[in-house]
Design a protein around this nucleic acid. Structure first.
Length: 303
DNA sequence: CATGGTCAAGTGGCA
DNA sequence: TGCCACTTGACCATG
């Protein structure tokens, strides 16, 4: 195993008001407009640097950037933000810092990003959101490869997986090349949806999108493969020279012995050793306690 | 100032 | 039929 990372929020810094997730409701955007969106984006960008520095101070070189850095960035023209030039400078600086310190940055746009949708409006919204993430990566001067992945799910079947996958692949072609080159697909956490094997057979074999293996999700949708087989297959889809990423989380319902919680929900901390079956991977820990869970894990297993 | 309901977005599973 | 879960809580009105 190489890098251990965490997602979007630093609890320690968050308590001090340092975060990249300043957001607002639509009503607030309507009331306050671009100047306020600009102010939030600038504060978010500045805090990203602080979080990256904190990470380096704590030996963490893998971080997922949240989707709210540009509040409403998928619906507004961010180049029209009053502070746009300054925001770009700050993001350029964050990117330089990441490169200099060998930090791997990724994103995970929300479950509303459905390239397989049968509704054109949903697809258009998805394209806008994915392109916003890609533009953010451009401003950070990150690679146009899945080293800096923009990761999504297929996420829905519309009653016919084959047709949905076909639409997914058609709509994928509508993305900019730089966005396409960063995109990865993750296995879903429902039996009815897409396992690693589904993604491999129906998408990777056709258009070569790398597969992110989510170990927790696999428990709910194995596609007939055990963990070791599925992880190996997923890892085989990554380009040479780019370390595959796997996601790791544990069940909140089991941790808290509470059957009212869905088994899929993520626990605050993780307790089991992360088995990577000798694959050379970076592991994104998806735990509600964020970097605290990562630090606890390293302490527990002395790594 | 703390709390709790609500918030942009899509889908599917379940009580 | 309406909540929960997913990428993630944070916003905002109210007391």
């Amino acid at each position: 195993m190489n890098n251990l990372g965490y997602a979007c929020i630093n609890m320690t810094l968050g308590k001090k008001g340092i975060l990249t997730g300043r957001a607002m409701r639509k009503s607030t955007l309507d009331a306050k407009g671009l100047p306020y969106a600009s102010q939030l984006a600038l504060e978010n960008a500045k805090d990203l640097k602080t979080i990256l520095e904190w990470n380096v101070d704590h030996g963490i070189y893998f971080f997922r950037i949240g989707s709210d850095l540009f509040p409403w960035g998928n619906k507004i023209d961010i180049t029209k933000l009053p502070d746009y030039n300054e925001i770009v400078k700050v993001l350029n600086d964050c990117g330089d810092y990441a490169r200099a310190n060998n930090i791997r940055l990724t994103t995970h746009p929300g479950p509303f990003n459905l390239l397989a949708s049968d509704k054109e409006e949903v697809v258009l919204n998805t394209i806008l959101d994915l392109e916003m993430h890609s533009t953010l990566f451009d401003l950070l001067k990150l690679d146009e490869t899945p080293f800096n992945k923009i990761n999504i799910h297929v996420g829905a079947t519309y009653g016919n997986k084959e047709v949905a996958i076909y639409r997914w692949k058609q709509n994928f072609k509508r993305l900019s090349l730089s966005c396409q080159k960063r995109l990865t697909l993750e296995n879903d956490d429902k039996e009815s949806m897409y396992s690693v094997k589904d993604l491999y057979d129906s998408v990777y074999q056709d258009i070569g999108i790398p597969i992110v293996f989510d170990i927790h999700h696999h428990n709910f949708n194995t596609g007939g493969m055990d963990h070791s087989e599925a992880m190996k297959l997923a890892c085989s889809t990554w380009p040479k020279g780019i370390r595959p990423i796997v996601h790791y989380s544990e069940s909140k319902a089991l941790h808290e012995n509470n059957n009212k919680i869905k088994l899929q929900a993520h626990s605050d901390y993780i307790s089991d050793f992360i088995q990577t079956h000798d694959n050379d991977v970076d592991v994104m820990i998806e735990a509600k306690a964020k970097e605290l869970a990562l630090l606890e894990y390293r302490k527990k297993y002395n790594i």
